[in-house]
Design a protein around this nucleic acid. Structure first.
Lengths: 241, 241
DNA sequence: TGAAGCCCAAAAGTACTACTTATTCAAGAG
DNA sequence: CTCTTGAATAAGTAGTACTTTTGGGCTTCA
């Protein structure tokens, strides 16, 4: 994804904007970028177009490239998520992702119970069992955990839930990496995963939803309070004379 | 957003891809596009870069521009959503958006109850009251409904929920536009909105969540079954020799 | 005959230049 | 003091020339 000069430029500019190094309102000019990064105009423009498509910047003739306020950003763009995670508000981003996950996974479980194929249900159960047998090895446990949630989201029969698989993976990895996980996975959590798998196999949406809700509500509890850097800045819209 | 030639080209190519006119696997070449749309290479390339950043296409030297399978697409990109809504799977897209909304709004309400400022809570209540007084005028009702949900999402203290405001607005507009709404808004729904506002004012997350859940669960019931055009195609990843 | 390696052509990637268009800001006219 | 006009600026567009990657075919040798 980072191949090519526009990609490299993007990986410089994107994090710089998202991290606040170029705060909203900052004005860049194509020529500056050409000189600063030693790239041709073609390359600079292509990178800018992508940033523009993420709503990180807006370009205006005679003015230049303006960094937009955060409410404009396409926060669901995988690269924006990645860049935010790499920057100073990593913790904040992990919080918002966790909350997002907490909202969607229970209902995804419910739909999975209604729509999963027998094959999917079987795989879920298999993975859940593997979760229990690998409770001693945190890394292996993590991978199975991710596989479980990915498969569940895919079985929900909703594209948009499926696509949240990367978010869930990121959150889970972030948790173990930051040692926010107990040394030994909570046996109750393991039990709940099996419960979810059973409910889906049985085609019992309410039970699947309840069990998944129990899983995520536990996660929400040991989550830091929101960092109140809430920028109430309204969304920027282009002026039309 | 559609200003400029790359923008116009994008608005031709994007919908064409998303609608299936250029099915996954289709190979385009920059030169073709230049001739077909009478644009310069610069323009064609900039449009392609944006499509690439949405993971709608992948470019490879000596091969060309390949349309990627749907699981790759950035389904949360506002333009992808817009294009899907304009195409043949509008109904399907409305379903997935509604389900997404159904998952997130209850938890967003819960967080709003914990985090909303007194001002926000007051505004929510005001809008809820206005909802009741405009039950006779479907259009006015719709706008207040949208304002209510937007504000609630913003009050949740989570960027990513806030950004779903557009999704909710789209879904709500889609419902009334397709006459899926009763001629007169359900009085029970109105009551529930007030209940949500009260719970948020009172700082009572469980009550806010329960009321919101009641609202969305009603919405989920009169939703068509999933169109089983489930393309189980796995995600495409570039080969690395 | 088949496998390995080499070469060529095709298509994207990059650079550079010239020109067009929109827009802001300021100067000047009323 | 306001309105108009014009000039400067920076993005937008076009076109060309060149580089780099890579897939596929062709040759060569075992």
């Amino acid at each position: 994804m980072t191949t090519g000069k526009p990609g490299e430029l993007l990986d410089d500019l994107g994090p710089a904007i998202v991290s606040g190094k170029y705060p909203p309102g900052t004005v860049l000019r194509t020529e500056e970028l050409e000189r600063a990064f030693r790239v041709s105009r073609t390359v600079a423009r292509e990178a800018l177009r992508v940033l523009e498509s993420m709503c990180l910047v807006a370009t205006r003739r005679r003015v230049g490239i303006t960094v937009l306020p955060r409410p404009n950003w396409n926060l669901y763009d995988p690269r924006v998520i990645e860049w935010r995670l790499a920057g100073p508000d990593r913790a904040e981003q992990l919080r918002t992702l966790t909350e997002l996950r907490a909202g969607t996974e229970p209902i995804a479980a419910s739909f999975a119970a209604a729509r999963a194929t027998p094959d999917q249900a079987g795989q879920l159960t298999a993975i859940a069992v593997r979760l229990r047998t690998t409770s001693h090895d945190l890394d292996a446990f993590l991978e199975h955990d991710i596989a479980f949630h990915r498969l569940l989201l895919a079985a929900s029969g909703n594209d948009m839930f499926t696509q949240l698989g990367d978010v869930v993976a990121t959150v889970l990895r972030g948790r173990t990496h930051h040692h926010l996980m107990p040394e030994v996975p909570n046996p109750e959590a393991v039990r709940l995963h099996i419960e979810v798998a059973e409910a889906i196999t049985a085609g019992d949406p309410p039970r699947a939803e309840a069990a998944m809700r129990a899983i995520v509500s536990e996660v929400l509890h040991d989550l830091p309070d929101p960092h109140d850097s809430q920028d109430p800045a309204t969304r920027w819209t282009p002026r039309h004379p």
